[in-house]
Design a protein around this nucleic acid. Structure first.
Lengths: 200, 200
DNA sequence: GTCTATAGGTGGATAGAC
DNA sequence: GTCTATCCACCTATAGAC
């Protein structure tokens, strides 16, 4: 099963999207410094030179990757917003986004890139920051509304709680790669949600 | 100020240790796939060939790096054990280990390597797992004793709580590189500790 | 132990034919 | 759009002089 957030060309003919799909998978599993045009070319059955027609250099490819990932993530958040359920259920759905990424044996794209941050082109660094800004804003709002409704509980500042949760989820994904696996992630995620959700 | 866990050759003449110190710094900031023998050679004012006399290949260097880091981490944990303070204070000291690493603009060595895990030589992968095993065991014991003494509180299984905390700290470090900085880490760390420590 | 020199491979990127 | 052919920089690693 495909758990990627943004793959959109499962078998379709759009080469550009197929490149993005494969590059995304490679970055999420191996990191930006751990993949090359040769990896993509081999997987797609084309030459390296062809890739440069679609993305003239690696930094540009990287930037599109982050933007597409961010847009898909944002779409998933809007989907939660429109679901009309309670704050606790929405929080669980937020955590499930991360869980689905991990089930595909992938790290969060921007979590992976955060590790490599200082080695990345400036243009990519800015896009990564934007991704975390988006998550922080959405989650802060959810936490505030949830607390006002008496459904969620957490200490003081909602923005700080949001950032702590984002970091905790990213870290649970990160560590699970080397220790604990998917089940380790799920156990950590469950504990994190339980602390915030009052409903039992 | 030097906040590294294991640097031991500040100005001393031991080339082997100087190589390890610089390689450690490079991996913690740039990742294993983001540094080369050339980086180390330039920083130390020697040639790449000289490095191969001390570490015949990069994987071997990587393995020693992890083992040395693990030993230093273990020493820091033993230092906490011998301090004779309460469980809550010990937990805060554990968190401070991470904080000191970050103050040197570094990511946890093994957190960084966890991101690159699938690209690493087998011999390094095993050593990374051992590092997390060590942390899990130490922290689990602390949590169990702390709860028995009425100082700490957390849900159910101490081992799961330990792993969730390790992941949360690693993730807070990770995300802080791209979003929030050191202050972001400190805020998250404070929230994590407050949830577990009953003492106020 | 450290050096010079170099091998053999892979990295990202380009020119120009089709 | 995709190809072949090629460039040059950088990579890990080795041989052998000093």
């Amino acid at each position: 099963m495909d758990h990627s957030l943004s793959s959109s060309a499962a078998g379709s003919g759009d080469t550009r999207e197929r490149i993005l799909d494969e590059a995304e998978r490679l970055v999420q599993t191996r990191g930006y410094n751990g993949f090359s045009y040769a990896h993509i070319a081999k997987a797609l059955g084309v030459t390296k030179a062809s890739l440069h027609y679609h993305f003239s250099n690696k930094a540009e490819l990287g930037r599109y990757l982050i933007e597409r990932y961010g847009e898909s993530f944002e779409a998933a958040l809007l989907g939660i917003d429109e679901s009309g359920t309670g704050a606790c259920d929405r929080l669980k759905r937020y955590v499930e986004i991360y869980e689905h990424v991990l089930e595909d044996d992938r790290m969060c794209l921007c979590g992976m890139l955060a590790a490599e941050y200082v080695t990345l082109p400036e243009i990519m660094q800015k896009s990564i920051s934007t991704f975390f800004d988006l998550n922080e804003a959405w989650l802060t709002k959810l936490l505030e509304k949830g607390r006002a409704a008496g459904e969620l509980q957490f200490a003081n500042d909602a923005r700080e709680a949001a950032n702590a949760l984002i970091g905790s989820l990213e870290g649970a994904m990160l560590v699970s790669r080397a220790h604990g696996g998917r089940e380790g992630f799920r156990a950590s995620a469950r504990l994190l949600v339980e602390k915030i959700c009052r409903a039992r």
